[in-house]
Design a protein around this nucleic acid. Sequence first.
DNA 1: CATGAACATTCACATATTCGAATGTATGGA
DNA 2: TCCATACATTCGAATATGTGAATGTTCATG
Lengths: 95, 95
Amino acid sequence: MDDVIERERRLFTLQAELCQTLADPTRLEMLYLLGKRPRRVKELAETTGQRQAKISQHLAVMRQRGIVRAERHGTEIEYSLADPRVLDACAVTRT
Amino acid sequence: MDDVIERERRLFTLQAELCQTLADPTRLEMLYLLGKRPRRVKELAETTGQRQAKISQHLAVMRQRGIVRAERHGTEIEYSLADPRVLDACAVTRT
DNA sequence: CATGAACATTCACATATTCGAATGTATGGA
DNA sequence: TCCATACATTCGAATATGTGAATGTTCATG
C-alpha cells in the first residue's frame, strides 16, 4: 500500500533528477548538437561559444546521469548520446 | 545568421525553464494527480501528504509558468492542467 | 461584522547550481 | 623527456531553489 506510494515517490524523484539535468540552456544545446552526431569537446565549445571548462563541467554532469557517453580518440574525447531517447524528452519540452 | 542562433538560444532557455519547473518530485506528483482530474488544494495536500503551504507554493510556481490553471469555487480553489501536453513531457521523462 | 475554513504569501535559512579562474591530467610528437 | 594540445577538476563566489514557520487574504455563514 504505502510501499506502492513510496515506490511511486522514488520514481518521481528519479524523474525530477532527469528533468533537472535537462534544465539548462547550454546542456540542451549540447544535447541538440550531439543528437545530430558525436562531437569532440572542443567542437562543442566552439559551436556553442562557451568556454571549454564550462562545457566539460556540463559533460561531467550528463555523464554522471548516464545521458552521455565518452570515447577517447588519442588526445581528443568524443561525446555521444548514451540513450537517444533523451531527444524525445527534449522534443516534447520544446515550446 | 547570428539572429538565428540567438533565437535558438532563447528557445533553449524557455525549454530549460519548463524542465526546471518539472524538476521537482512534489510538482511531478501534483501534475500526475491533476492529469487524472482537477483537484482542490486541500486534496492535493492530503493526497501527497505535504503541507498546504508547500502545495500552494508549488502551485504558484506552476501557475506563473502557465502549466496549471486555477478556478475558484466559493472558498475552495480547483486546479487543473492548463495544457495537457505537459503530461507528454512527464511521460517521456519517466524512466 | 465576527468567525472559521481554504488558500496564498512572506521571511529566513539551508542547500544546490552555475560559472569563471586557476590548476591538474593524459596523450602524442619533437 | 619536454612540450603543446585537449580535456577534466577544484575552488570560491554569486545566485537560485525548496522548505518550514508564521502570517495574510478571501469567502461563506451565522
